[in-house]
Simulated scan of single mutants.
Amino acid sequence: MTRITINKASIEDAKNISEIIRISFKKQAELINISEAEYPNYVAFETEENTKSRINNTEFTLRSADADPRSVRGIFGEV
């Protein structure tokens, strides 16, 4: 049986979070023909460093299945 966990994300989770975000928006960037060179701040090109700075201003939770990070949720502002 798969064990699902949801935890508050921390700076240490930035690499996993940025990877999940990039994967989630990659197809959209391809469909609308957006390149990283033209739009480096577009969500499909999220970097670990950008994620680290966002974690300081956002409530992030990271969902894992059997300790494998699978999804992320971020809420800006007060929660």
Rank of each mutant, 00 (worst) to 15 (best):
K52A: 13
N57D: 10
K26W: 12
E46F: 05
E59N: 15
N7I: 14
I55L: 14
I11T: 08
N56G: 14
D66C: 11
S71G: 13
E46R: 04
E78M: 05
I21S: 02
E49H: 02
S18P: 03
R73I: 15
K27Q: 15
N16W: 03
I11R: 04
K52H: 09
K27N: 12
D68I: 15
I23W: 07
N50V: 06
S53P: 00
V79F: 09
L31E: 15
I34W: 11
D68N: 15
V79Q: 14
R70C: 14
N56P: 00
V79H: 10
Y42Q: 11
T47S: 14
R73F: 15
E38Q: 11
T58L: 06
T5A: 13
T2I: 15
A37C: 12
I32L: 13
N50C: 10
I4G: 03
L31V: 10
S18E: 02
S24W: 04
N56D: 13
G74H: 02
R70Q: 14
R70V: 14
P40N: 10
Y42K: 05
I23C: 01
I23H: 10
K26A: 12
R73K: 08
S71A: 14
G74W: 02
D66Y: 13
F60I: 01
S18V: 00
P69R: 02
I20D: 06
Y42A: 05
S18Y: 00
E38L: 03
K8S: 12
D66Q: 12
R54F: 05
E36L: 03
N41P: 05
